[in-house]
Nucleic acid binder design. Structure first.
Length: 101
DNA sequence: GCCATGGCTAGTA
DNA sequence: GCCATGGCTAGTA
């Protein structure tokens, strides 16, 4: 049976290397359609397993963090990223440096 | 209907 | 700054 969309999103997010980030759009591309990018956000919002699914490594295409990050908002996401060496300037990261693709 | 998006356009200076 | 997109969920009946 085909894995549902959310599971596929989680599979990809689980592969993002420590110390890098990716975007909703990149994940959507991997799933075959850039238009699914918004659904990627939905999937991460519903994520209940932050231990195995590092959703803090996903930002939007401008490199900005998620204001509605489930486990504590931008501050929590920022702290998690900084803990693995990603520099966060205000509420955004430099995609040229950290983008995983 | 809702969105943790992304891409493109209109309108100003 | 607007809106097309599409899988999912909350909330009503």
């Amino acid at each position: 049976m085909m894995k549902n969309f959310y599971e596929k999103v989680y599979d990809i997010v689980a592969q993002i290397p420590k110390g890098t980030v990716t975007t909703y759009g990149c994940i959507a591309m991997r799933l075959g359609n850039i238009r699914l990018s918004r659904l990627v956000g939905n999937a991460l919002h519903a994520n209940i397993d932050p231990v195995n699914i590092p959703c803090h490594r996903v930002v939007n295409r401008e490199g900005k963090l998620a204001p509605m990050y489930v486990f504590g908002g931008i501050d929590a996401q920022k702290e998690r990223l900084e803990n693995e060496g990603v520099v966060v300037d205000g509420d955004k990261v430099d995609l040229k440096k950290y983008l995983w693709r």
